[in-house]
Design a protein around this nucleic acid. Sequence first.
DNA 1: TGTTTATATGTCAATAATGACATAAAGGAG
DNA 2: CTCCTTTATGTCATTATTGACATATAAACA
Lengths: 179, 179
Amino acid sequence: MNTLSYGLLSLLTKNSRSGYELMQHIQPFWSAKHSQIYPLLAQLEQKGHVAFVHVLQSDKPDKKVYSITEQGKDALRGWIAEPTDEPVTRDELALKMYCIGLVDKEQARNMLAVREVYYRKKKERFNTLMDKLQQGSEKPLDQLEIGDDAFGMYVLVHKATMKVDTDLYWCEWMKEKLK
Amino acid sequence: MNTLSYGLLSLLTKNSRSGYELMQHIQPFWSAKHSQIYPLLAQLEQKGHVAFVHVLQSDKPDKKVYSITEQGKDALRGWIAEPTDEPVTRDELALKMYCIGLVDKEQARNMLAVREVYYRKKKERFNTLMDKLQQGSEKPLDQLEIGDDAFGMYVLVHKATMKVDTDLYWCEWMKEKLK
DNA sequence: TGTTTATATGTCAATAATGACATAAAGGAG
DNA sequence: CTCCTTTATGTCATTATTGACATATAAACA
């Protein structure tokens, strides 16, 4: 089983979700298209790690809501105990910046500006996520502990926020360099 | 042509390098194994974007040193002008942290400690890179401009350093949470 | 002298991931 | 009533990436 499969199981420890919802919720932390997720869910179901029920909706198309099984939780615990892969980042803009001297300042500034917009939108989304998290929690978020249900999501959104802030700082710094 | 191919061309705008050296130099910014790089270099050579010469070495095995051609530089400029893909990050530890409540604090702390060592080593490597960059430059690094040869490498190493510092801050923050 | 490590280049099968194609229900805008 | 968007699920061909296999030179170490 690949990492994304375990990632899907991870999400399902908190809520039962459809494939479509899983896609939306995992994407901020692990980019994956629906065409990868649906086949993996079918695999997980065959192995008995998840089970699903058809849920009929009147306002939207019907969906298949997946839940993690006890067997799935066992698999998850086994995965967590194993050595963790190193993180992988692939940023095309970084490669372009390496040889940015090939183009003029104006074009370089423009590339940075596009990326900055992307980061700002991303930051907004994480802020929204954090707000929603606070609304669903009795405790203030900074008092959440490892046992609390929202702890995992909280530390991830915090990490993501720190990262996007750093990315924005770098953009600002670059703008100065390209003045 | 894929992004990695352009990344290799980017590196070759600064120095002629062997496939092995290209692998070592691109990995901090775009993870790729030699088994991906060698075939791409062969492709680039066939297309006339790079050319190579055999270089005989007495202390080490002989190598093929690649240089970018004018045609290759044109291809690069075309690539830079195109819209840039969004960055992709895949961090298995983040997925594990989402459901960290499945294991005890001790195990969680241990996972963080392993990752912290990884980040510290990475930070060391970027510090070394920055030192080497300064040694090879007449100007102080913070006075480099877009036209300078070392500018691209400088801004990338700066970005990487900012990122790894943020990652280390997050590790420290997590350690507090898991006390 | 044998062993390990780093350098160096390559192929190939398997896996991971994307993009295109396909379908369909429901809501909203015009 | 038609078009567009969102939700929803799926398949399949192609591309990207990895891991295993393969070979070879040279230094360092025991």
